[in-house]
Amino acid sequence: MNKQTIPASSLIKNAAGDSVAAALSLAIHEHRLAPGTKLGEDEIGEIFGVSRTVVRAALQSLAHIQLVEIQRNRGAFVAQPSLTEAREVFEARELLEPRTARTAAARARPEDIELLKRHIADEHAALAAADHGRALRLSGSFHIEIARIADQATIAGFIEALIARSSLIIALYWRRESALCESFAHHALVEAIAAGNGQRAEELMRSHLVDLHTALDLKDRTAPARSLRDALRP
Rank of each mutant, 00 (worst) to 15 (best):
D112A: 02
A86W: 12
E94K: 10
P35M: 05
A108T: 01
P110T: 04
R74P: 09
E85C: 06
I28W: 08
A106D: 10
A105Y: 02
N73A: 12
R102L: 02
G36P: 01
I65Q: 10
R32G: 09
G36L: 03
E43C: 00
D42N: 09
E46T: 11
R74C: 09
L39S: 01
L83T: 09
T103L: 09
R72E: 14
R107F: 06
A16H: 14
N73H: 13
P98R: 00
S19C: 12
R74E: 15
S61I: 00
R93Q: 15
H29C: 15
Q71E: 15
S25M: 13
D18I: 11
A106N: 08
R52T: 09
R56V: 01
Q71C: 10
E94D: 12
R102H: 10
V78F: 05
F48G: 00
N73G: 05
V68D: 03
L95M: 14
E69Q: 10
E97S: 06
H64K: 15
Q80W: 15
F90G: 04
F90I: 06
I28S: 06
G49I: 03
G75K: 05
A101Y: 06
L95Y: 14
I70K: 10
A92Y: 11
L39W: 04
I113T: 02
A22D: 13
A27W: 08
H64Q: 14
E88K: 15
I28L: 08
E97N: 08
V54S: 00
E91Y: 14
E94C: 08
P35A: 05
A76Q: 03
E94P: 05
R107H: 02
T53N: 08
I44Q: 02
K38M: 13
V54C: 05
R107A: 03
E111Y: 03
A22G: 12
L33I: 05
I70W: 07
R107V: 04
A108K: 03
D42C: 07
H31F: 13
A27S: 11
L39T: 01
R87W: 13
E97K: 04
P35L: 05
D18S: 14
H29E: 15
K38G: 12
V50M: 02
A104R: 03
I70A: 06
A86I: 11
H31A: 13
A104D: 04
V78G: 07
R99N: 11
A106P: 04
E91D: 15
A21Y: 02
R109F: 04
V20W: 07
E30D: 11
L67H: 05
A92T: 14
R52E: 09
L95F: 13
S82R: 10
A21D: 05
G40F: 05
R93P: 08
E88Q: 15
L39A: 00
P81I: 10
G40A: 04
L24I: 04
E88P: 10
E94I: 08
E94Y: 08
T103C: 06
L26C: 13
I70Q: 11
G40Y: 07
L39P: 00
T37C: 08
A27N: 09
R109Y: 06
V78E: 07
G17M: 11
G45T: 03
A104C: 02
A57T: 07
Q80F: 14
I28V: 12
G45K: 02
A92M: 12
V68G: 00
E91H: 15
A58V: 03
